[in-house]
Simulated scan of single mutants.
Amino acid sequence: MRNRSKKVVAQLKKATLDMLGEGPEAAQKMTRMINPQAAQRILAALREAHGGRLELGGPAEVPGVAKAERFVQPTIVVDPKKDSTLMTEEIFGPVLPVLTVSSCDEAISIVNGKEKPLAVYVFAPSPVVDHVMASTSSGAVVVGDVMMHKGNPELPFGGIGGSGMGRLHGISGFEEFSNLRAVMNRPLTMPSPMRLPVEPALAKVAWTYANLSPKFLRTMGRAGKVLALLALVFVARRIARWRSAI
């Protein structure tokens, strides 16, 4: 796994440098953090003793870029400590921590040991993808890519648990921000079986019917089930009247 990790990090570094360059070149192409506090929060996390290996970028000042410009370099940190700020807080900046694991199950264990994520991105064969989806919980799963689900209007976008509640996009967003009004219309000639308090006779019927053998019920058919239920209601009410007469 460690050799694969080195190959992945090397490709990530190459792709970043090909697209953005580094230092002043990257600063000309990249946008800035929303405010000085956001930039300082990320730079502070990079300056702490996170224990990781810096492969690209970092917290160093970039020549020609003023501190007030709120610029954070594209940064790759390999194997930071699991209790470091980089691994315990959401980054929301151009910093990618890379953890080396010995197996897929170890990666799953790390995911499940933290708050439920907004999305899980999986680059793996189908059996591994199925295993990851069955073993984790997240707002979304993207196979073979990252973040692209947010731009797909056909997919509901949102988190779960600590990553957020609710969904937006298309019909999911319409339903999320609509107030569905529940209307129940039933005839007044028959009492509702859901009303309270429940008649003891009907309660016994429900209990008896629920405890009938599923195999026996399957052999009865729909008409037989209705007749059996009516017979139970009749018997239960006759018994209740007999007891009240005594």
Rank of each mutant, 00 (worst) to 15 (best):
N3Q: 05
N3K: 13
S5W: 04
K6I: 03
K7P: 00
V8S: 05
L12Q: 02
K14Q: 07
A15K: 01
D18W: 07
D18Y: 02
L20S: 07
E22F: 12
E25F: 05
E25P: 12
A26G: 13
A27H: 10
K29I: 03
M30Q: 09
R32Q: 05
M33V: 06
I34W: 03
A38W: 11
A38R: 14
A38F: 04
I42L: 10
L43A: 09
A49E: 11
G52T: 06
L54E: 06
E55S: 03
L56N: 12
P59M: 00
A60H: 01
G64S: 07
K67D: 07
R70T: 01
R70V: 01
R70K: 03
V72T: 01
Q73M: 02
P74E: 00
P74C: 01
T75L: 00
I76A: 10
P80I: 01
K82R: 10
K82F: 15
T85C: 04
L86Q: 00
L86T: 03
T88D: 00
E90P: 07
F92A: 05
F92T: 04
G93D: 10
G93I: 06
V95S: 04
V98C: 02
T100E: 04
V101K: 05
S102V: 08
C104R: 15
D105R: 04
E106F: 10
E106A: 13
E106Y: 14
I108V: 15
I110C: 02
I110H: 13
I110F: 04
V111F: 11
N112E: 05
K116Q: 03
P117R: 15
L118S: 06
V122L: 02
A124G: 12
P125E: 13
P125F: 15
P125A: 14
S126K: 12
V129H: 06
D130Q: 01
D130P: 01
M133W: 12
G139W: 10
V143A: 00
G144V: 05
D145K: 09
D145G: 13
V146D: 13
V146L: 02
M147K: 07
M148V: 12
H149F: 14
P153A: 10
E154M: 13
E154H: 15
E154L: 11
G158W: 01
I160F: 13
G161A: 09
G164Q: 15
M165I: 14
G166I: 07
G166F: 04
R167Q: 10
R167V: 12
L168D: 05
G170V: 08
I171A: 12
S172Q: 06
G173V: 10
L180D: 08
R181V: 15
A182L: 03
M184Y: 13
T189Y: 02
M190R: 04
M190D: 07
P191C: 08
V198N: 00
V198K: 14
E199F: 13
A201I: 08
L202P: 07
A210Q: 14
L212W: 11
L212E: 06
S213Y: 12
K215C: 14
R218C: 06
M220T: 12
M220K: 11
M220L: 08
G221E: 05
R222M: 15
G224F: 07
K225L: 12
K225T: 00
V226E: 09
A231R: 13
F234R: 08
R238E: 06
R238S: 00
R238C: 07
R243V: 10
